[in-house]
Design a protein around this nucleic acid. Sequence first.
DNA 1: CCCCGATGTTGCCAGTGGAAACATCGGGGT
DNA 2: ACCCCGATGTTTCCACTGGCAACATCGGGG
Lengths: 206, 206
Amino acid sequence: MRETYHHGDLRRRLLDLTAETVAGRGVSEVSLRSLARAAGVSHTAPRNHFGSRAGLLTAFATEGHLILAERLREGAATSFLETGVAYVEFASAHPAHFAVMFSQEDLVVDDPAFVAARQQTFGVLCAGVEGLQDAGKVSDAAAAAIAGWSLVHGLATLALTGNLDASSVRAYVAEPDLSALARRAASMLYGSGTTAAPAAAERKEV
Amino acid sequence: MRETYHHGDLRRRLLDLTAETVAGRGVSEVSLRSLARAAGVSHTAPRNHFGSRAGLLTAFATEGHLILAERLREGAATSFLETGVAYVEFASAHPAHFAVMFSQEDLVVDDPAFVAARQQTFGVLCAGVEGLQDAGKVSDAAAAAIAGWSLVHGLATLALTGNLDASSVRAYVAEPDLSALARRAASMLYGSGTTAAPAAAERKEV
DNA sequence: CCCCGATGTTGCCAGTGGAAACATCGGGGT
DNA sequence: ACCCCGATGTTTCCACTGGCAACATCGGGG
């Protein structure tokens, strides 16, 4: 009843080890050989599952997009603002996945599974913007889409890379909770139209 | 009258080769040895100038921050909106520098020169936000600072990593000019307070 | 004039990605 | 029930890289 022949699901184990390594020491420290050692297999075993280092990172990024799309759908059920908050919360909860997903470096960008998973993420975002447009809450839907996505993506990126902590901007933001900060910042963009009391908004996120 | 003893300014040459390599094939393809070969020197010559691969990338990132800070000062002379536009235009004009500056990976983050240069960038941004606050144009200066920086940083990041082109969001943005797109998106954030006719705003940028 | 530090070279080592040839396990077709 | 064959994993090899140590060279300043 073992899931695979010899190891017992080496593929799953390698993806988990990737998450640990990226979160702890950065994506550049991810090597097929070190992961193989950690999993107790020979140094070419990972190639049977991912083909190459880029293949491993692509599979990892694909996993990330599937999780993110699910989180965005949950947020979208509440409001477009919460969709953005969910975006930042995903980055905070899965920093390793987030870092790899958008690196576009060392990724097999035309991998079918990856492209499909990424399309799910984009699909939820675009659906949210269409909702705003239909409700007449924004005049320039294109700018709203780009601005909203850029804002949450930039906030997540800056927070994860430590640039928020290291900067003198830190003097402005005593806010330790990234979710609350995301809600405050995003409210500035859609403040009048989408939510009157952003800090009190209820959420169903895990 | 040669600037250096043997090569003629190997340091400058290596930084230029780094820009070419990062822009063309990604930061992971930057190796001290390949750059040394391209410069026609032995494989350890770069170590005399940068100490290590991380040292090279840190020097490269430092150079980027000095350029960015200068561009931001020019934009800040016009308006805070133009400061944000200048941020995106820098990323577009110097994609290699931008990618390395915020990677926080393979960087000697406590390098004094790097920290000082980064502080220049943050200083200009914070000064711009203080200007907005003093003018009473924003109520929540902290959120405004984070939101503004996040928006332009996210837009630049998404554009450079190709996620803007690859996504179905592309259906919304026929806008080929990244500067104009940045102005449209940023206008949504400060539209009422800082500029009435964003598209017509004059600029002194090069 | 000559010493010494900046600059560059040669040789070495360990770690890595990748490929080929081979071994093993066990499910499915017969 | 048997055995073939593909999935999984191993062994062995190569080229490239980062880093270190010992050495060579250049030329400005004491």
